[in-house]
């Protein structure tokens, strides 16, 4: 059965169709969250939360965008809500520390952790999410704006700020390497 038919069935309340849709999009959702959180355990929690939200709201899905884009939109907003909550509870620094767990894991398996990934870790989420959506997934500014519930102009300026920040971080790394 095609995705379109599965969506129609799922919206009518067919639980098997919805289960199949979630299974087909699990990998996309997991990898998207991994890229924006840079943290495996946060990713796993958010995948679960996103799927639950999708089950609750499936009737409201308008089929204007791809199903995976809708899931990405839900996941992004859940992540931003979590960050806002952590900032008010002052647990934000703990999460930044946890983000380095992927780096340690990469080192343990002899994988190279690039300076660009380091820069992404430091970049704030408000800029990191639009940057990844634009330059990795290829969404337009309008689509990013709709997904993150911000004006397209704001999405554009956040991507611009993200690129600028990463470029500065990379230059900084290069300068330090030159000095050493």
């Amino acid at each position: 059965m095609e995705e379109k038919d599965l969506i129609k069935q799922a919206k009518k309340g067919n639980q098997n169709a919805l289960s199949l849709l979630l299974q087909q999009n699990y990998s996309i959702l997991f990898h998207y969250l991994l890229k924006i959180t840079l943290n495996r355990s946060v990713t796993e929690d958010l995948v679960q939360e996103t799927m639950l939200k999708c089950i609750q709201k499936i009737e409201l899905y308008e089929e204007k965008a791809k199903f995976s884009s809708w899931l990405i939109s839900i996941a992004s907003n859940l992540y931003m809500d979590q960050i806002r909550k952590q900032k008010t509870e002052k647990k934000y620094n703990e999460q930044i520390k946890q983000a380095r767990s992927l780096k340690w894991k990469a080192a343990a398996s002899n994988e190279e952790w690039s300076e660009l990934l380091d820069a992404l870790c430091v970049l704030n989420e408000e800029n990191r999410i639009p940057l990844i959506l634009k330059h990795y997934y290829g969404y337009t500014y309008d689509e990013i704006g709709r997904m993150l519930k911000i004006p397209a102009g704001t999405a554009k300026s956040r991507v611009h700020n993200g690129v600028k920040f990463i470029r500065e971080e990379l230059e900084d790394h290069e300068r330090k390497r030159g000095e050493a």
Binding site: F30, H31, L34, K35, L38, R40, T43, L102, K105, A106, S109, E111, S114, L116, L117, L120, L131, I132, H135, Y136, I166
Partner: peptide
Amino acid sequence: KHQLTEELSRLEKWE
């Protein structure tokens, strides 16, 4: 942009 795509694709392979 190319570097970003490459590095993030590597993340997918690790996890």
